[in-house]
Design a protein around this nucleic acid. Sequence first.
DNA 1: GGTCAAGGCCAA
DNA 2: TTGGCCTTGACC
Length: 542
Amino acid sequence: MSDVERMVLRPNHEGEMCPVCGDRVSGYHYGLLTCESCKGFFKRTVQNKKQYQCSAESNCHVDRTCRKRCPSCRFQKCLTMGMKMEAVRADRMRGGRNKFGSFYKRDRAHRMQRNAMRVPTVIPVQTVTQTPTQSYYQPADHQVSSSTTDQNSQNIYFDQTKVKTEFVKTEYDAHLQSPTLSSTNQQLSDFIMRPTGYLIDHQDSIAALLGNASEDPLLRHTFPASYQLPEVKQEPFDYNEHLVHHSFQDYHNIYQPTTNYATMMPMTAVSTTSPLVTSTSSTASGNITDASSNSPVLPLCPAPTEKTVDHFYNSSMAELCKTLPDETQLPRFMSASKGTKSDGHSFAVLMDDQMNLLQTCWATVHIVDLTYAMVLGNLPPTYKIANGEDVSVGFVALLGNQTYVNTWAELTNQLRNMGFNKFDYCAFRFLALFDQSMEHLQVVSSARSQVLQAWAEVRCSTGFLEIFEQLRRIAYDSIRYLWSLNSTCPRIWQQLNPDSSLVMEMIKTSASKTPAIQPTTTITQVPTIHQTTYTPVVYMAS
DNA sequence: GGTCAAGGCCAA
DNA sequence: TTGGCCTTGACC
């Protein structure tokens, strides 16, 4: 093992801050880089099945000095940041490796790469003054497989050598640099700027779109092609094996509990409202009692092991999508597709359906992405674009559609207060991808059902779904707003290069596909959602 | 045998 | 109840 490899594999948490309270990180604990005190707090809470009640509004500030004040909000923040109750052992067995070992290793390697690449030729694109307690960049970077960037960045950086600044001239250029939209823009196809300021590689956009956490480009910086740190051992990816055995419909067959976790069951899913959807594993009272019914879609299985978690991430849809353009794999794909006629026509139809989905959903995914980042506090309130103007983050999120900026901000606040976490974010993304308006496609309808069922295993609130639908309608309206510019603001429209730009084609197509907001469903008010509708599933020993 | 993320212990 | 330190044990 080389020195560099040793550096990659050896933990170095010096200077790292706990994403929950900001104290010094002592290592990976229950899926997250945290301090010793949050580790102990989380362990006690889960082991002793503690139920906390916030005396305020469930949005208490948590930092090193006041973390003892509100255990309810502290625990909620632990969960939101990504600590995993499943990692607390039901049998209390000491020692041994935990179930996320390979995650930790991979995450460490990613972090080392980021740290290594932070040094050369980067300049701040926007210097944002922030205090430790006012960080709109919450340190979700500590979370294994999370989809955010770096906590320690006081400035937001970009690689000066990569940015084609000539394309950053108007407010709409700011839109075009937002993640989803820009992935379709040929002019910016080499590098894409995330709202947080990071440039991501073009090929990552599909992974981002599909919500694969381990492949999320926000986990990675863009590296010069010539620069490569030694990777942690990569498992060879067998396309055929993954497609056949880990297809979307077969996830539930993969995630089988192991003995360590077999005794852990989600005992209570307390809610004052009905479950999100009727689940076959739910009782009439809404309590989920069947731990063997694992998530078919989301990494929410009640008994994840290192092996099964690895399966999920290594066999991700993103990996499958990456292999699709490879002609040498195409025959295997065709023969491996269950129930799919193995001929070129079937494949063409499949691709056509995928394009339909992407064209319909990209704006929703874009808004969902920014919503989650806002919930985590990762985004500054405004962005300065190249011409010196400040635009609000809502302006960027809604593609310039000012109508619902305030509504979006309120929805974001509500989600934050409801404890919106990465699982909900993941569900939102899948629901966005499998757009309701495409439910005439059988696979979409089926996929939506699986997502909803998986989600219902960890959430018992219709409130989240209501807000998602609001976001989706806002996305539709924003696309139509963009499209309307060709008649209302021809000057700006022309700057978007409408005759040759691929993004214009996407806007045009999606504007024609997304259903108009009906008068009866026009978004005028944020729905009233009570915070008490959310209670996390608590894993308990049976 | 070293590593490190689990659980346990115990003073504050 | 908290949080710092210790012990344990699977994995490398």
